[in-house]
Amino acid sequence: MRFNPCADLCTKDGTHCQGCGRSHEEIAGTKQLVASFIGFIQQQGYENSDEFIDMVSKKVRKKLAQAADKPQTH
C-alpha cells in the first residue's frame, strides 16, 4: 500500500476520504500518533522540538530498514 498525504479535500462519509483516498481508520490512527508526539514534546518541555522530530524520523527510517532486512517469522 502506498501512503497518500492529505490533499485538504477531506470527507467524512463512507469508509475512505475522497480527498486523499485513505481510510478513515488510517486517518484516525495518524491523528493519534501526531497527538501522542505533541503530548510527549509538551510534557518534556522541549524548546527544540524540530530536532526531536528529526531524530525520531531518522530512527523510524533506520528501524524500518532493519526490519525489512530481517526474515519474517510467524
Rank of each mutant, 00 (worst) to 15 (best):
G45K: 03
S36F: 09
Q18P: 00
A35I: 04
V60T: 04
R61A: 14
V60R: 04
E25P: 01
H16T: 03
D69I: 08
E51F: 02
C20S: 06
M55F: 06
C6M: 04
D13Q: 06
Q42A: 04
A35N: 10
E47S: 14
C6E: 05
D13R: 04
T73H: 09
G29L: 02
F37W: 06
E26C: 06
L64S: 07
Q43K: 12
Q18V: 07
K63F: 14
R61W: 08
D13S: 08
K58W: 11
K59C: 08
K31V: 09
G29W: 01
V34Q: 12
S23W: 05
K12F: 10
A28V: 13
K12C: 11
H16Y: 03
H74A: 15
G14R: 02
K58C: 14
Y46M: 15
L33R: 09
E25Q: 11
L64R: 08
G19M: 12
P71A: 08
F37R: 01
Q44W: 06
Q66V: 07
K63D: 14
S36G: 07
V34T: 10
G39Y: 00
N48P: 03
Q72G: 05
I38L: 10
E47A: 15
D69T: 12
C20Y: 03
I38P: 00
S36K: 13
Q18N: 12
F37A: 02
C17A: 03
L9A: 14
A65F: 11
Q32G: 10
P71D: 09
A7M: 13
T11R: 07
G39F: 02
A7H: 10
I53T: 03
H74V: 11
A28W: 12
I38C: 07
G45D: 05
I27W: 01
N48H: 13
Q32T: 14
G29D: 02
Q72M: 08
T15A: 01
Q44H: 11
H24T: 01
A68C: 09
F37I: 04
